[in-house]
Every structure is written in structure tokens, then in C-alpha cells.
């Protein structure tokens, strides 16, 4: 899984049926110090992450397993909100 910061939300009326009722958030991949590390991307939220939260997300086919229907067409899903990072080295 990878770090990201929630920087926005997306609303879409016409979308795939299995995405109805799911919150779509714009996330920015960051490294563990919070510096930008990639382009913005849209991820489905399953843990009620809010704006500005530091979260971690799963990529590719494994991400779809976080949804009730494992065949939903998503490739990045927020799977957890980070409370604290304990990094000594």
C-alpha cells in the first residue's frame, strides 16, 4: 500500500452501476514526509476519509477486493487512515 493525502472530492452522476453510492476522493500520492510524489488520482473511499487526511491506498486489481463487489472497475481504493507514523531510520 502507498501513502496519499486527500486533496479533493469528485462527484459523478453517470458512472458504472457498481460505483453508485461510493465516495470518490481525489488523492495525491506522497512520501512519508508528505512531499508530493506523483500525479493526482481518484480513489474510492471505504473508510470515510476526510479532506486533508493522510491515508494509505491499495492499487491495481487488489484494490477492488476492498469493495463489497470484488468485480467493481476500480484500481485504487483508500483502505485506511493513518493515525501516526513511527519511522526511526
Amino acid at each position: 500500500m502507498f501513502y496519499a493525502k486527500v486533496v479533493g472530492t469528485v462527484t459523478a452522476t453517470l458512472k458504472d452501476k457498481s460505483l453508485y453510492g461510493k465516495k470518490l476522493l481525489i488523492i495525491e500520492p506522497v512520501d512519508c514526509r508528505g512531499d508530493k510524489q506523483g500525479d493526482l488520482m481518484v480513489a474510492v473511499d471505504t473508510v470515510q476519509a476526510g479532506f486533508g487526511d493522510l491515508v494509505f491506498y491499495a492499487k491495481s486489481k487488489d484494490a477492488a477486493l476492498a469493495m463489497e463487489n470484488p468485480n467493481t472497475p476500480v484500481d485504487s481504493v483508500i483502505t485506511g487512515i493513518i493515525d501516526s507514523i513511527y519511522k526511526t531510520l
Partner: peptide, 18 residues
């Protein structure tokens, strides 16, 4: 390098060290 503490996470990840 360290570990991550996360309370709100996917139910299958509970009890595992990140």
C-alpha cells in the same frame, strides 16, 4: 524503517502490523 498506526482501516487489516 518503521511502522504505521491506523485505527480506521479495512476490516481484514485489523490485527496485522503495517
Amino acid at each position: 524503517l518503521g511502522n504505521v498506526v491506523s485505527t480506521y482501516k479495512h476490516k481484514e487489516l485489523t490485527g496485522k502490523k503495517l
